[in-house]
Write a protein that binds this DNA or RNA. Sequence first.
DNA 1: CACCGATGCGAGCGACCGCTCGCTTTCGGC
DNA 2: GCCGAAAGCGAGCGGTCGCTCGCATCGGTG
Lengths: 202, 202
Amino acid sequence: MAMATRRRTPTQERSRRTVERIVDAAAVVLADAGYDAASTNRIAAQAGISPGTLYGYFSGKDEIVAAVIDRVVDGFAESVAPALREAAGQPIEPATRLVLDAVLAEVEQRRDLIAAFIDRVPAERYAARVDALRTRVADVTFHLVAASIPAADRDELDRAVWTSVRTVEHLTVRFALAQPFERDAFLDLLTGMVVGLAPPSR
Amino acid sequence: MAMATRRRTPTQERSRRTVERIVDAAAVVLADAGYDAASTNRIAAQAGISPGTLYGYFSGKDEIVAAVIDRVVDGFAESVAPALREAAGQPIEPATRLVLDAVLAEVEQRRDLIAAFIDRVPAERYAARVDALRTRVADVTFHLVAASIPAADRDELDRAVWTSVRTVEHLTVRFALAQPFERDAFLDLLTGMVVGLAPPSR
DNA sequence: CACCGATGCGAGCGACCGCTCGCTTTCGGC
DNA sequence: GCCGAAAGCGAGCGGTCGCTCGCATCGGTG
């Protein structure tokens, strides 16, 4: 999809590095100066290339920002997967905490970049990309729990999953940004909330 | 604060209506075309006035948007107050649900305008105004519960209040925008989450 | 090593934006 | 109905932005 409007298809190693440098530069400018200041000219300057070169590979600002988001989303999915594997087979409470710890850790690691997006980027334009991640997370969560509950409660599970995904996403990001209290206390609180949402416990 | 940079102080009825029309127009343009397209020239055109007139009362785009936010925030505080009064004295669970119902109702009523802000407006610039509301809500919540718990648990209450406020705000807005399932089920879920966060129940 | 497509350059265009200012029109107390 | 103040007007300024295009340079394949 991102390729569709990309003008030149980089074939040589040199150009592939150029594309990387553009995305790197975009992340830096976004984190340092915010979304509005991240003009294509400025991103090009930060990358040490000319505007013309930038437009050789991206159709405009939106596509560059989308590439940055994709990088974050991909890295996120990647780094939570191990925790998911480790949690499989464990009781629900420690398993949940394990996964939430990994999620929070990843958000904390990307703190500056995420801070640059939250409250600065008009999210609507890029909602589709983040929604794709949300849907994947929701699907995984659903299937992890679905087996252990009666089929009649599937609707309730759907509601609990929607609520959980939104809650975890928002609270995790906000906690990482504001750090209003101790990390462990937060994980305890969040784990309790998520576990408490599971249909069987009600 | 908004007055500080306002150039002319409207004294006649005519100019007071002009200011109202500017804020109205800003809300319309924001809802229809988004934040980026909401240039001062466009807002002026929508309001049926000239750019010069607009700058007679506002120092720029930021101040106009802030005025729109203030309007929403004020109306919000106003319309939840009755539910708060009614809830006083009732047991925690029905009281909580009563208040959450009022919150959700207000968000639903302002749905279009809120939709225009969430994911479209770079919230960072106007965070102070919304944070003021959040702090007020947190204070009210804290004092409502503080009396009925041991002083030793005050830290835990602080954490629970922070989590509650963020959770209610986010879930309510997202639910009103997406309407992923039945309203009553959502209120049940949310009430359970909030009540479950109160320190005494743990 | 010669050649030609792939890559990179950067001045500059058209468009729009925020904002001003000299002027006209309207209001309201006398 | 007069007149000073209040309100409104709108062409246009300085500036930035997104983006292009003709041309120079690079690099791998025959």
